[in-house]
């Protein structure tokens, strides 16, 4: 499982790779946190349950990231560890993190939403890729 962010004109893209779809989605979620802060600075001491369902895997990725954006915004939390299971276009997950500590986390920017821009969920050999651009 690995993740990265990528450049977009005004915003930033998040990209996750994994041996399973769930791992790729978890990695993309870590990249989402990296847009805001260094994920290593976020202690995974509280968990939040998230579930969503969508007509296809690409929309499911957008829904998953938007669910995290919503939980971050309404709980004032950041997340750094994710356990994701996906079956039949249904996602069940636990996101682990802690309340935002501005001094320690130095959050750079809040994320407004996950977009359909550069949206892709695909399999390349043994590896899944999940990515999209998020609006900051």
């Amino acid at each position: 499982m690995r993740w990265e962010t990528f450049a977009h004109d005004a915003d930033v893209g998040v990209r996750g790779f994994g041996a399973t779809l769930g791992e790729a989605f978890a990695a993309a979620a870590t990249a989402l946190t990296a847009v805001i802060t260094d994920p290593h600075r976020v202690t995974p001491r509280e968990s939040v349950a998230i579930s969503c369902a969508a007509p296809d895997y690409e929309l499911l990725l957008v829904d998953w990231l938007n669910a995290l954006i919503y939980e971050m915004a309404t709980r004032h939390m950041l997340f750094s560890h994710f356990e994701v299971e996906i079956a039949d276009l249904q996602l069940m997950a636990q996101a682990f993190g802690e309340p935002i500590d501005v001094e320690r986390h130095q959050p750079a920017a809040e994320i407004k939403g996950a977009s359909f821009c550069a949206l892709e969920v695909s399999r390349h050999g043994d590896e899944w890729l999940a990515q999209c651009v998020v609006d900051v």
Binding site: L59, D63, N66, A73, K112, G113, A114, S115
Partner: peptide, 25 residues
């Protein structure tokens, strides 16, 4: 931000049924 998120999704899903062919989702 949430209105944008909610309706972007709903419009993307509903477009084919509305007879709208989108060059880009």
């Amino acid at each position: 931000h949430q209105i944008g998120t909610d309706y972007l999704r709903e419009m993307a899903i509903a477009a084919p049924a509305q007879g709208i062919s989108l060059p880009d989702r």
